[in-house]
């Protein structure tokens, strides 16, 4: 039981790193980016290629995965996404579906459709017994890394100048622009960091989530659940939502395997029914 909770926690933390970028994009730009998972996939493949083919140490590939996904995010934001902010949600959805299709087929073409196997370094493998409870080393590693990142994000948002500008822009874009905040730059940096984090999440999760070209589609609903359950007004909301989701998913798959992913979607629908208004309180 405790092992399961631990696994769920690790899974949840990972989901948080994967989807926090989406929460900010949605809160800041009111943009449903269904292609968010594509950035995660980019990071995942970067790590797999670097470790498996070029023999780079796994830990070293993580920042590279972040940088690559962030760079792709930056370029796409500046060239394409920026043209979409003023369009309708329907346009935004179609646009990001288009991107997902391109990402899925593109990766399929370049890497093949098979599941990628990531070779973790030996020191991250296996499990240890703590007070009779089996604890996976890699799971522990995930919780520590993602926990530190979550803390760093929270501090960055609440304590730094950029963070206060970001919060101002989330609250009211027009007012923020009025008081001289370079909203466009804030958008671009935020988008890039969000994509980078997704990429890092994809890299970290390649081993436990599985990585193949359909990754963006498979996890799209998960990301959206985190965002819709957690809300977009703080970092804490998506974090709690991620952990809840991770634990519920792991426990659900273990105790009632016949239901499978159903638990997750049920969580979504229940939240939607109970708090239909509160979901996107910031969406006007």
């Amino acid at each position: 039981m405790i092992t399961l909770l631990f696994d769920g926690l690790a899974y949840g933390m990972l989901l948080f790193i994967l989807s926090c970028g989406l929460a900010v994009t949605l809160g800041l730009m009111n943009f449903i980016n269904l292609a968010h998972g594509a950035f995660a996939m980019a990071g995942g493949y970067a790590t797999v290629i670097l470790t498996n083919r070029l023999g780079m140490p796994f830990l070293l590939t993580l920042p590279v995965a972040f940088v690559i996904a962030a760079a792709v995010g930056w370029v796409l934001e500046r060239t394409l996404y920026i043209r979409m902010y003023e369009k309708s949600p329907l346009d935004q959805v179609l646009f990001s579906i288009g991107l997902v299709f391109m990402a899925v087929s593109g990766v399929d073409y370049l890497m093949g459709s098979q599941q990628q196997i990531l070779h973790l370094p030996d020191f991250l493998r296996g499990r240890v017994e703590v007070f009779g409870v089996g604890i996976g080393i890699y799971r522990t590693f995930l919780i520590v890394v993602c926990g530190v990142l979550a803390l760093a994000l929270q501090l960055a948002v609440t304590r730094t100048r950029f963070g206060s500008r970001l919060r101002a822009a989330v609250d009211d874009r027009r007012v923020a622009r009025g008081v001289g905040i370079p909203v466009k730059t804030v958008f671009a940096v935020t988008f890039a960091v969000g994509s980078g984090l997704a990429g890092l999440g994809g890299a970290l999760g390649a081993e436990i989530l599985g990585l193949d070209p359909s990754f963006p589609l498979k996890f799209m609903v998960y990301f959206l659940i985190v965002v819709s359950v957690g809300g977009t007004s703080s970092m804490a909301g998506p974090l709690y939502a991620s952990i809840l989701l991770g634990v519920a998913d792991v426990l659900g798959k273990y105790y009632v395997p016949e239901l499978g992913g159903f638990v997750i979607y049920a969580v979504l629908v229940v939240v939607l029914v109970v708090r239909p208004q509160g979901l996107f309180a910031r969406a006007s």
Partner: peptide, 11 residues
């Protein structure tokens, strides 16, 4: 609004 509807139908 639209955002919520897209989410709900997807869900």
């Amino acid at each position: 609004a639209d955002l919520t509807r897209l989410m709900v139908t997807l869900g």
